[in-house]
Amino acid sequence: MGLFSWLSPSRVDENGDANAIPTKTQCFYIEGFLTCSYFTNAVRVADMLTANYPHIKVDVSAYVKEQWKERAEELQQEFATDHKTSPFIYEGCSTENQTLIGGYTDFAKRVKETYRLNNIPLD
């Protein structure tokens, strides 16, 4: 076991298969401004994800660029982070258990590693 292995999410299923793709309902939230190419890419990745895994739920909130700064500040306070760029992606089906993923690159890496969708650009 590597020094930082505890940081990555466990992908062991109920049969002990470490390479299992999660089948439990998972919720992702993508917020960003409409003209942001990273926001658009995140939505495309979410579409691929939900097309392949119907138990995945994605909620997308799009803003005009002028509204984004205020919304990003609200999200920064809510998640106690300095992330402020578009998109802002977090996960968790219950509001008490939502955690920040980060931006597009963080989301793309998570999807590639967890759900093994290989046709996803990392930036």
Rank of each mutant, 00 (worst) to 15 (best):
D13L: 04
D13K: 03
E14G: 01
N15M: 05
G16E: 03
G16V: 06
G16C: 03
D17L: 07
D17A: 07
A18P: 12
A18R: 13
P22F: 10
P22N: 08
K24N: 10
K24Q: 14
T25G: 00
T25M: 08
Q26C: 06
F28V: 03
F28R: 04
Y29S: 11
E31L: 13
E31F: 03
E31C: 12
G32L: 03
F33K: 02
L34M: 06
T35M: 05
T35L: 09
T35N: 10
C36A: 11
C36M: 00
Y38K: 12
F39E: 10
F39D: 04
T40R: 15
T40Y: 01
T40H: 10
N41H: 14
N41Q: 15
N41T: 10
A42S: 15
V43D: 06
R44I: 12
V45Y: 07
D47Y: 06
D47V: 04
M48H: 08
L49A: 01
L49K: 07
L49C: 09
T50R: 14
T50A: 06
A51E: 14
A51S: 15
A51N: 13
A51M: 09
N52L: 14
Y53K: 09
P54W: 08
P54Q: 10
H55V: 03
I56T: 04
K57W: 00
D59R: 05
D59K: 12
V60F: 00
V60G: 00
V60I: 14
S61W: 00
A62D: 00
Y63I: 01
Y63V: 01
E66C: 00
Q67V: 00
Q67A: 13
W68T: 08
W68Q: 08
W68M: 09
W68G: 08
W68R: 09
W68N: 05
K69G: 06
K69Q: 12
K69E: 13
E70R: 14
R71W: 02
R71H: 13
A72F: 06
A72Y: 12
A72G: 11
A72D: 09
A72M: 10
E73K: 15
E73N: 12
E73T: 12
E74N: 12
E74G: 07
L75M: 08
Q76D: 08
Q76K: 15
Q77E: 14
F79V: 04
A80P: 00
A80V: 13
A80E: 14
H83N: 11
H83Q: 13
K84T: 09
T85K: 07
T85I: 04
S86L: 09
P87H: 05
P87L: 01
P87W: 02
P87N: 02
F88N: 00
F88K: 02
I89A: 04
Y90V: 00
Y90G: 02
G92K: 06
C93T: 08
S94A: 12
S94T: 13
S94Y: 08
S94F: 02
T95G: 00
E96S: 14
E96G: 07
E96Y: 11
N97M: 11
N97D: 15
N97Q: 15
Q98H: 05
Q98D: 00
T99R: 14
T99D: 11
T99S: 14
T99P: 00
T99Q: 14
I101P: 04
I101N: 04
I101E: 05
I101K: 04
I101D: 05
G102M: 06
G103P: 09
T105R: 05
